[in-house]
Computed example of a mutant assay.
Amino acid sequence: MKRNIVIATLTAAALVTGGTVAAFAAGDDETTAHRPTGAAAQAATDRDDADDSAEDRRDDTDDDRAAAASGDVSAADAIAAALRSAPGTAVSAELDDQDDNGKVVWDVDVLGKGDTWHSVLIDPASGKVLGSHGESEDDTAEVRAALKGSSVTAAEAARAAAAKGTVTSVDLDDDGASRAWDVETRAASGKADQDWRVDLTSGKVTADRADDDEA
């Protein structure tokens, strides 16, 4: 609206004086000169797309590296090694980048006595324990309640899901009534991740439908 008023006023002045008026109307908060041209806007969009593509490639590289590393020491093997170092109940195991140099390790969470948890790092090539630290957590009671009466361990869940692909993580889903082991696998091609649910008592493996819906 302000732009139209300025143009109308300058046009009227030109008609009265018989002169020629060159006017540049601006928007409310910025001048036209400050707005990116079509080419500049397209260049900015291209840069954003390139950044997104680069990030996607980095994520894919991390996934590929993790899947490749898991070929030497399986999730079940990593859990067994962690339990020898820190006795208790394994609740999760995941191939994870631990630092900027891209080194991938198995990170196994073990619930020990009382409220004590142990995070044990396992070399995916040799199965050796690289480090371990303990800490106390608030959700110990919930985890113990979820596992009460279960007969399938994290290692057994990992072995059951291994028939679907290379296991890259196993974790206890203790939310709600449908408690189960959540297991992620990667196909032999290295390009397809899939989430599975392993029943805590029967060991039955089913596709994670919630994961399918999100995809």
Rank of each mutant, 00 (worst) to 15 (best):
A177G: 06
A163M: 04
T153F: 01
T116R: 10
S126N: 08
S151P: 02
V170L: 01
T166H: 12
L130T: 03
L130D: 03
A160T: 03
R144D: 02
T116L: 15
A154W: 05
H118S: 11
A141H: 06
G112S: 13
W117V: 01
V170I: 12
D123V: 01
D174P: 04
L147T: 01
R179P: 05
S169Q: 09
G131D: 06
G127S: 09
H118C: 02
A158N: 04
D109N: 14
S136F: 10
G176I: 07
A157W: 02
V129D: 05
V170E: 01
H133E: 11
V152Y: 04
L130M: 04
A161V: 00
D115L: 03
I122K: 10
S126Q: 08
R159N: 13
T168H: 07
A177H: 13
A161T: 01
G112H: 07
D171E: 15
A158C: 03
L130P: 00
V170K: 00
V110H: 05
D109L: 15
L111R: 03
V129F: 00
S136H: 11
A145Y: 00
D174E: 12
D107M: 07
K128L: 11
G114R: 05
V108M: 07
E135D: 09
G149H: 02
S132G: 02
T168S: 10
P124G: 15
A160G: 03
S150H: 06
G134F: 09
D138W: 09
V152I: 11
W117Q: 04
E142D: 14
D107R: 14
V108Y: 11
V152D: 04
L121K: 15
G127Y: 07
D139G: 07
G134R: 15
K128A: 14
W106C: 04
S119V: 09
D107T: 10
K113C: 04
A141S: 07
S150W: 03
L147H: 03
W106H: 10
D173E: 08
W181Y: 07
D138M: 12
L130N: 01
L172E: 05
K113D: 12
K148S: 13
D109A: 14
D171N: 10
L172A: 05
D115Q: 02
V167E: 07
I122D: 14
H118N: 08
R159E: 14
D138L: 08
G127H: 10
G176A: 07
D107E: 15
L111Y: 03
S126K: 12
A177R: 15
L111V: 12
P124C: 10
K164E: 14
G176S: 08
E142M: 08
R179M: 06
T140G: 01
V167G: 00
R144E: 08
A162P: 00
R159Q: 14
K113S: 13
E156K: 11
D107C: 10
A154C: 03
W106Q: 10
A180N: 10
D175M: 09
W106E: 02
G127N: 11
